[in-house]
């Protein structure tokens, strides 16, 4: 149970970064930390004591496997997370070109 709670703490650190920081790069880092904590939590749920990795081989035919379903879902989520992070970064450098700063307090004009 303490592992689940520590995962929750990591999620809260990411949320703190999103709400309290003023720099766009820091906000993106906070979002990525939240995403990683959720992925870690999903894999933690699927773990089973004294089980092996979910790959059938000749010596492990009757073995106990960890839950493969969260692993399959998280595998695609990691790759899509890379593409969405790149999308956020490209929006950030577009805004930097427009305003000359990453500070969101100075991005207060409604143009372009």
């Amino acid at each position: 149970m303490i592992l689940f709670f520590l995962c929750f703490i990591l999620f809260m650190v990411g949320l703190y970064g999103i709400i309290m920081q003023r720099n766009l790069i820091k906000i993106i880092i906070g979002l990525a930390i939240m995403e990683y904590s959720v992925l870690f939590f999903l894999i933690l749920i699927g773990y089973i004591d004294s089980a092996t990795a979910p790959i059938i081989s000749e010596s492990f035919e009757e073995a106990l496997f960890v839950d493969p379903l969260p692993q399959a879902m998280v595998l695609t989520a990691i790759v899509i997370g890379l593409a969405t992070k790149a999308l956020m970064l490209s929006v950030a450098i577009r805004l930097y070109k427009e305003y000359g700063t990453f500070d969101i307090r100075k991005m207060n004009t409604l143009k372009g």
């Binding site: 894999i43 773990y47 979910p54 790959i55 960890v66 692993q71 998280v74 595998l75 990691i78």
Partner: peptide, 11 residues
């Protein structure tokens, strides 16, 4: 450590 080698390689 959690026996997810696919995820470790991709991550």
């Amino acid at each position: 450590l959690l026996y997810a080698p696919d995820l470790a390689i991709v991550q």
